[in-house]
Amino acid sequence: MDTTDLSIFQLIVAYVFVLILMVILKRRGIPREKEVLIATIRMTVQLILVGYLLAYVFDHSHPLYTVLIIAVMEIFSIFNILKRVKSVLSTRLKRIIAISMLGGTLASLLYFLYVVIQLTPWYEPRYFIPIAGMLIGNSMTGISLGVSRLNDGIRGNRAAIETALMLGATPKMAARTIVNEAFDAAILPTINSMVGMGIVFLPGMMTGQILSGSSPLLAIEYQIAIMLGILGSVSLTVILFVQLGYRTFFNRYSQLVID
């Protein structure tokens, strides 16, 4: 089966959906037209630039290019997490966010590429970059949710935590419930996505493979593997964050310290 190419005209016609949203927002009096317009322009420009970049990288496969692109992905994801979280974050907590993202995503990515799909050569960009993007992107969302829930939870339950500390609890014991709630909130979107996958919706990667002419069964095999890799990456990055992150709210004397 040949892939159906989209002409420029067909692509432009797809922007009708943006116009529909703009009309709805205008009629409902919701002031988000500017945001939608900016988001649409940014998406279009960014994807076009990435498309040309990936076309070059795929044609000139080199480990340096792959490593540089992964580094940019990681840096941008960390920056995006810090930008998303509206509450105040300490310098130590920001450092933990970076460590958790790098450690969790890279460990999961390397395991997935070398053990699960056994990629050769290791830097093959056609596999390395798209898979890295999915793992890093989902982990970024998970960490963002975990950061907000942990930070707000500890700040909002300051009195209860300090009471527990005065009664002899360790910081780990005093913050246990908040840490568990932060972890649960962070992984829930991934679990919900897995529950509805295949019945409620077809994932983007699977849809792309089918549209490109791949067998649906092959697409399913890859999608199952990718989804399990995403689950592992999100779980690992979030557990690293919450386990290390809550400690930044306490000093060496086990006292709660909030900047």
Rank of each mutant, 00 (worst) to 15 (best):
Q223T: 15
D2E: 14
R27E: 10
D5T: 14
L6H: 10
T141P: 04
H62L: 00
S90W: 07
P125V: 00
Y222E: 07
Q118Y: 06
V85T: 14
I48C: 01
M227T: 13
L89P: 09
M197Q: 12
G104Q: 06
A107E: 00
R176G: 08
L47A: 11
L167P: 00
Y222R: 06
Q118K: 14
S233G: 09
N157W: 01
N180Y: 07
Y127I: 12
R252I: 06
I69W: 02
R149I: 15
A107T: 15
R126G: 09
E162A: 00
L145K: 11
Y123T: 07
V179W: 02
F183E: 04
Y114E: 13
I69R: 08
P189S: 13
V147M: 11
V115I: 05
L167T: 02
A219G: 12
L135G: 08
E124D: 11
V45G: 03
L54N: 00
R155T: 09
G196N: 06
V72M: 08
P63K: 09
I75D: 01
I154F: 01
L150I: 01
G198K: 09
G29F: 04
L113R: 01
K83F: 13
I81P: 05
A14W: 00
V67D: 04
T66F: 00
M1L: 10
S108A: 15
Y52C: 07
D184Y: 11
L47Y: 11
L113K: 02
M173C: 08
S215W: 04
S215G: 05
L240Q: 07
R158T: 15
A159K: 11
T120D: 03
A169Q: 06
E33I: 08
R28K: 12
R155E: 04
V116N: 11
T40Q: 10
A132Q: 04
A55I: 00
L165E: 00
V238E: 05
V115K: 04
L119F: 07
F250A: 05
T91Q: 08
T40R: 10
Y123K: 02
L102V: 14
F128C: 13
